[in-house]
Write a protein that binds this DNA or RNA. Structure first.
Lengths: 182, 182
DNA sequence: AAAACGATATATCAAATTGATATATAAAGG
DNA sequence: CCTTTATATATCAATTTGATATATCGTTTT
């Protein structure tokens, strides 16, 4: 029974900075947050409804032409819920790496397949690392360094781990090729 | 619509080595695999039923005393499904790090809370790293090095990333403390 | 100017996963 | 003998995933 809806905290965190629509929230999550958290429309819209019923957020419907739009705003109660969550020291951290799963179970298969799987992973990481570095550099240049320290820290986490991944990829490929095999 | 049940592949991968019960499978997942994949009973048992219906595995009921036990065995069709999955180059790799989420949104809160959250994370990683290193050392000492190369590679991935995490923790704590603040 | 295209915006659904709980037996330890 | 831990299966609500549907708006291509 997943008792706490984690997406709620993501949404409250985003709304604590600015009012947003569900669509905006999705865009924010797909941005700087995406490398350590995910969210989907099927997740976001029901959460917005639920939180509105709980009084954690309020909605404001507008219509520009024939276009409907609902913007959400965090309430004091919502702000309190966010703070409570921030103070709880328990946090679930987990990774699901299908690439490692394939490598782990790939022993029975040809070594070439394993090497190729690592190469595909490596390319993806290189791409992601490039994006993150650009984001990080833009932050460094920003005047208000103090305000961006938390964004910098999460970005540097991503960069450090991605760099570790790449080192591992090089080592793993070398090992698999050296030992010849199937 | 999550079209592919990933747990199926984990189970087939495990069954490709030995016959197992659902309970055994859970234990295996909680072991060497746990740092890059998770599984629960509520996930495993339905998957076993489903795969039996699909003919990917066969079951063998036994009863020792008043105790029932169902052991599963992989079929040729199941083995093919596993091989097909191994060859598919697409793989979803993602992490969900609540610690980073808290750090990212914690800017509005006191700096002490952020430092504490990092410390809690750090302790967990140190503990996990210790376990992984022991596992890795045991593998190195194993006579059949060739057979264990894939297990070593996944373990070394964990060690490398955990070490990167710890370096980041040190840096992040230092940064937060240096800048004083709230 | 019309058509095509991509971005904006909300909503919904089946399937999969999570995390907890329930139940019962066997083994181990004090 | 009793308590605790390990074995073993099952089920459920809540949550998440990933896809699909629908419709409008703005920009670019024919």
């Amino acid at each position: 029974m997943a008792r706490e809806r984690k997406i709620d905290m993501v949404i409250l965190g985003l709304l604590s900075h600015e009012d947003l629509t569900g669509y905006d929230i999705k865009k924010r999550i797909d941005g700087a947050i995406s490398f350590f958290w995910k969210g989907s429309f099927g997740n976001i819209y029901p959460a917005l409804k639920g939180m509105e019923n709980q009084g954690l957020i309020t909605k404001n419907d507008t219509s520009v032409g024939g276009r409907e739009k609902t913007t959400y705003h965090i309430t004091e109660s919502g702000s309190d819920a966010l703070k409570d969550w921030l103070k709880e020291e328990q946090a679930s951290n987990e990774l699901k790496y299908e690439t490692l799963l394939k490598l782990f179970f790939g022993g029975a298969e040809s070594r070439g397949v394993s090497v190729h799987n690592i190469e595909v992973f490596e390319e993806q990481i290189q791409k992601d690392l490039k994006v993150l570095k650009k984001y990080s550099e833009a932050l460094e240049k920003s005047l208000d360094v103090e305000d961006h320290i938390y964004y910098s820290l999460t970005a540097s986490f991503g960069i450090k781990t991605y760099e570790a991944y790449l080192k591992w990829c090089a080592k793993a490929k070398k090992m698999l090729k050296q030992r010849g095999g199937k």
